[in-house]
Design a binder for these strands. Structure first.
Lengths: 254, 254
DNA sequence: CCCGTGAAGTTGTATATACAGGCTAGTACA
DNA sequence: TGTACTAGCCTGTATATACAACTTCACGGG
């Protein structure tokens, strides 16, 4: 039934486990190849493969002569494309604030139940909040969270910690699916985001999985005039160990 | 100046070269590890690393007992997220057609020159075409291509082969950057896409690099009511060799 | 005090070797 | 004829060994 995993994969799992449990923090030193040889009774080539693949996958950074260190690149959002609005704003050096409009226990129905793969009537927490960048509304977050996944969700102060950050802290989110649309919003959304009549919205609809099942479903409305999504694609094989120049956009955005 | 690349990387480059030159077609057999040992005078472990990494990066598929074969997964779009509208429509089983509205040689100025990193006045080919799915307009492609990169661009019949496919055939596009916006378009765009007054557009602005320099800059307008972008994110390390279930969205789109 | 030098530890690469396990084709046998 | 088996090739993993290059740090000479 349960195939024995290869030795190098066991090593990877062990280290990933230490990272996601918090035992190893970003920038912490990971055991060197020789230390793994001693403590785990493997050959250096096996330890090398484990650490090299963790490097390729972005979990750690390796520097010849110095050692292997937990990467903090990954911790901010786990997946580059699926980021937290607060971090995104902070990255631009601006001030983030958010206002909780609704935070209530509800029964899932219709689209929400379908998206979360649960029966109609299952308990979900409904969150509605407006995120602002330097005081200007930039995202209306309309989110449903499986109550069984995040029991503390009703008490949490989401003005201080965003739902995204809170959910990530409970359990690493492992998979995400999103749809991006453009539409002219209804009055309610217009009011929340303080946008003109007839202005377009960029809508991101996102489902996120943890432990193999969907746990949260969010509709994110953004004012078309104040928000855009950016992405940068490089072919795999472009070594992660070389200096990461993730810069070079920005000028098109102005 | 030019650091000697490691042996395994030379092997990878060699095989990638054979694939992108067309010498090796999808599903063709790639030299086995032992054949590389003989012909390239390397150890089997080195050949193994080269082929294993090509597998991880999606260039080839390996089957224990049978051999290594060129993957066709990669050839359709090189980067999953940066796809060709014609392929995308074909994937849905619908009919794609396109109409060329403009195909002319121009001098780059302003935003275009800036985006392509060239002097004002450099020759660029300007393309404007409307793509339709089952006869319904779904994308207005407003593209500028560096004339020096694609000399045949003015003669090409883009109603038959999309610019994206044509450019990919000239040289593999290696890097892409895109910005996604929502906006209400002007009259001209409205007319091309046959959309209602006041309806939103999903706008994708994309720059693509080849051989280290930007070669094409495109603004893609889509009717908000008839088009959406979808994305699916899985953490790296989710082995590529296991059966790829890229399915599982679709139901949210209805 | 400063600088160079070298030792020790680290990653990066390359090789030879070994065994396990999957796949295929051909052969021997019933 | 058909079936079972096996030889041969393939990938997948694991180990021991070796050398190169980089980083840090301590030590010693100027």
């Amino acid at each position: 039934m349960n195939q024995a995993k290869p030795r190098y994969q066991q090593l990877k799992d062990l280290i990933i486990g230490r990272i996601s449990s918090g035992e190893l923090q970003p920038a912490d030193r990971v055991p060197s190849e020789n230390e793994l040889v001693e403590s785990m009774s493997v050959s250096r080539m096996t330890a090398n493969r484990a650490l090299r693949e963790l490097n390729d996958e972005g979990y750690v950074d390796r520097v010849a002569g110095r050692g292997t260190f937990v990467s903090d690149y990954r911790s901010q959002s786990h997946l580059l494309e699926v980021h937290n609005i607060a971090d995104e704003i902070a990255l631009r050096g601006h001030a983030h604030s958010s206002q909780v409009m609704r935070q209530s226990l509800q029964h899932a129905r219709g689209e929400v139940a379908k998206a979360l793969h649960v029966e109609q009537g299952t308990d979900v927490v409904h969150l509605l909040l407006v995120h602002a960048e330097n005081g200007v509304p930039i995202q209306l977050e309309d989110r449903h969270v499986l109550a069984s996944f995040a029991p503390g969700c009703l008490q949490q102060d989401f003005a201080a910690v965003t739902p995204s950050a809170y959910l990530t802290s409970i359990s690493p989110l492992q998979e995400a699916e999103q749809v991006v649309r453009a539409s002219v919003p209804n009055r309610a959304v217009q009011k929340y985001l303080d946008i003109e009549d007839g202005e377009a919205c960029l809508v991101v609809i996102r489902r996120t999985w943890s432990a193999g099942r969907p746990v949260t479903f969010a509709r994110l409305h953004h004012p078309g005039s104040r928000y855009e999504l950016t992405g940068h694609y490089t072919p795999p094989g472009t070594s992660r160990s070389t200096s990461s120049d993730v810069v070079q956009l920005e000028e098109l955005r102005q």
